[in-house]
Design a protein around this nucleic acid. Structure first.
Lengths: 261, 261
DNA sequence: CGTCCACTTGACAATCGTCAATAGCAGTGG
DNA sequence: CCACTGCTATTGACGATTGTCAAGTGGACG
């Protein structure tokens, strides 16, 4: 029932309390009914690569893909392992991280619905992907997807745009990692998460944080303690309120000023 | 004549002393003779996107491009400005940097021959590009290049592969910025530069550093002083030798161990 | 009720940044 | 020709932001 509790809380913080949450929870715990996608009730139409396709192209894509669910804390794939699939996230949140030989870790990103895993199209994974919440993805064989891209330039264009956008975000994150103070890092992280959720669920001052403080630290190049101290300080200064599973932003302007790009 | 001196020194450190350097220097200071490319004597065939094309496609690309030269210290384009062109670097080195409002700077990369500028295909530039040495690029109108990509999937595929590779490098750099000590950062920078030059000129323990210590610091999230201290320490420990315009790597194994990914 | 884990808080340490001075070199102009 | 300027690099002294170590709280779960 841990899964249930987490799912409900997650949706609650999102302000998206489903009238029949049972449906979602059930489908996230049993394997898909069979091959093929469930695009009819996809929650992220208009956000994913799928939107870029014509009806006929869409059908081809649907044919080579299948919906797969993962429980919270599941590992979707590990750095260095074979990468037989690429996937499109339809619900949930993931942590993407790289591990150094001595155990130090860098979180290179958090993936949300609409994000695409496997942009690099490389035969092995460049990082590990772990589910922070129950996760659903549309999964495609890498080879099949690659072939389809070669046949359908519009699909390839959509992937290219996505890769270009990711590259741009990565460069922004370099600025954060290289030239920001701890306080600015936290501010930029919170504003960044808010903006990303806004694209999915619309704007809100509720920012769910399905990751731990350690994850945030490993994303920002800080320690857990520093993350905790900074967030406590911001809460004391009434810039944010710390709530279960996330934060509420009280002074967005102040945060944006700290995070200003 | 500053340009001449720099160019010669640069090539010298590369071990690529031209028998007729005058040619290069002259062509790098006058505008191209006219529209069109000079692909016949391109130095980076096999490294650039061009290699991926058939003869007919190549001709189309050649038609929409032109060769442009810049003097050392010239600014190719600035963050936030319109981006009417994309370009492929054929010789020289560039610094790509982002500026914060308060003057702090993050260098997001150094571009070398074979690198592509404008992968994001966005209407404005996301960073500033400055020439560290005299630079030559093949320049294409962004719109023209974009249209050609849509017609020639192989070209788009080449750009996608390049973007994916850049993204991967950016994520590696995130690890360096977030989780590496100053010494490890320097080591990883030197090894990284060596590997990149190896692709272009073949392996060598001579690593030219056309950028200043400040640039290196802004790339690694360090100050000039720390970069200088770490490099002199490495020199004292006989891991490297500091030479005019670069370094020689004495203990590559030791550096690779420090930089181990 | 006990264990585990995430989070918080405090004391202290150290890496790295800040400030300052100096050397070296190239280009400039009287 | 040579002083003068400006930039890059180096080095030292000092300081502070952030990391390390340690302890303790509270919630979730079995």
């Amino acid at each position: 029932m841990e899964t249930l509790a987490e799912k409900v809380l997650f949706d609650t913080v999102f302000g998206r309390i489903e009238s029949t949450p049972r449906n979602l929870v059930c489908s996230s715990n049993k394997p898909s009914p069979g091959p093929g996608l469930e695009c009819a009730d996809c929650e992220i139409k208009g956000l994913s690569i799928c939107e870029s396709l014509d009806a006929d192209e869409f059908e081809l894509l649907e044919r080579i893909g299948r919906t797969v669910s993962f429980a919270a804390k599941a590992t979707l794939f590990e750095q260095g392992r074979e990468a037989p699939f690429v996937s499109n996230i339809t619900s949930g949140a993931l942590r993407l991280s790289k591990l150094l030989p001595d155990g130090r870790r860098q979180v290179v990103g958090f993936a949300l619905p609409g994000d695409f895993l496997g942009l690099a199209m490389e035969p092995t994974h460049m990082f590990t992907a772990d589910a922070l919440t129950p996760v659903k993805v549309c999964q495609f064989s890498r080879q099949g997807f690659s072939d389809l891209m070669d046949q359908k330039p519009k699909l390839m264009r959509a992937v290219l745009n996505m890769a270009a956008h990711e590259l741009s975000l990565a460069q922004d994150q370099m600025v954060v990692l290289g030239r920001r103070t701890a306080e600015e890092k936290i501010a930029s992280f919170l504003i960044g998460m808010r903006n990303r959720y806004a694209r999915i669920h619309g704007p809100s001052v509720h920012v769910p944080l399905p990751m731990t403080r350690l994850d945030i630290g490993d994303y920002l190049g800080l320690t857990v303690e520093t993350v905790s101290r900074m967030m406590t300080r911001m809460a004391r200064e009434k810039i944010i309120v710390i709530v279960p599973d996330g934060v509420r932003l009280l002074e967005v302007a102040r945060l944006e000023q700290l995070a200003e790009m």
